[in-house]
Write a protein that binds this DNA or RNA. Sequence first.
DNA 1: GTCTATACAGTGATAGAC
DNA 2: GTCTATCACTGTATAGAC
Lengths: 189, 189
Amino acid sequence: MRTSDSATRILDSAQRLIQQRGVKAMSYADISTEVGVGKPTIHHHYATKANLVEAVAERYFKVYEQALGQIEASSDSPEEQLRAYARLFQNSYADDQNMCLCGMLAADIALLSEQAADTVARFSELNVDFLSRLISRHRDQSKATEPSHIEALASLIFSSLEGALLMARGSRDPQVLDRVSENILRLLG
Amino acid sequence: MRTSDSATRILDSAQRLIQQRGVKAMSYADISTEVGVGKPTIHHHYATKANLVEAVAERYFKVYEQALGQIEASSDSPEEQLRAYARLFQNSYADDQNMCLCGMLAADIALLSEQAADTVARFSELNVDFLSRLISRHRDQSKATEPSHIEALASLIFSSLEGALLMARGSRDPQVLDRVSENILRLLG
DNA sequence: GTCTATACAGTGATAGAC
DNA sequence: GTCTATCACTGTATAGAC
């Protein structure tokens, strides 16, 4: 159905609005205009705003999880995989200077329902786990490293990219992300 | 004047609310309740919400600039100065899981006036410049390094800490900041 | 599944008295 | 410098028809 994936188009619009303006500034009126349906239609698909945010977060998590899976499944080297990982963030910024959805939700954590906040926490784990595996694989090729060090390095890489996305928006300097991405590759070796 | 630092207490309240909830969720009603003055009083000191946000950002910038100056003036080693720098972020989080004000403003960049957005950009430069000087001083003790590498490393450190602050909020894990801070020290040497 | 119409709380902001 | 009273507007949400 062309018409009846309104639910999906509402999610698309809501996600974009959150990434650009934050949860509080994402309104039913904006979505209504963008998608071309009445506000009651939005409520029909997602009863409350909390529900809508939860749905956006959950879908984002799953899509992102799949993307990480594809990177991991590729037979590339850990270095190449890390490059592909960094590209996820670069693509987000290239697409209208979008913040990572969960990065924005983390900033707005005080406004979220328990469920949405939980998805944000799981997103963080997802990234750290992915990076920890990647680092382990890389380290096996040379020398062994303590698990706590690996997790700390994974946290550093994830934080760097989330922060670089934030910094790129704040400083209006698109190159920040590229420079940080390059230096992260150096961290690995 | 005891009474007439209402202006200051309004700024304090507004800043805290922005750091915890973001610009859009900071309201005159909240400040009015917290400070104990009527909403018209807030307008008397800061005519519009945009003015208020600009004043909060500008004061934050200046206080932060002073803090960096004190770190720089201290006769400590570059390593110790970097530790003190990281502590600024750790203190922010320790104080009610506060986001860095300009980090939150960067997330809310689409909602800001030109002037406020400019202060955020200047804040970013302030940090990168400070860190670049610090790195240069450290490198002089050993080997020379290209300026572009220094700035890239400075951006990485700043991004890491802003991102770690965001990540600590999102993952509800206070130790993230500590782990990232430690690893940053390793980046220097 | 979508609409019109509407309820009602909260928003930033202003007028004018003290 | 602070107040009371009030403004126009927008926010989320609901009722009920089609």
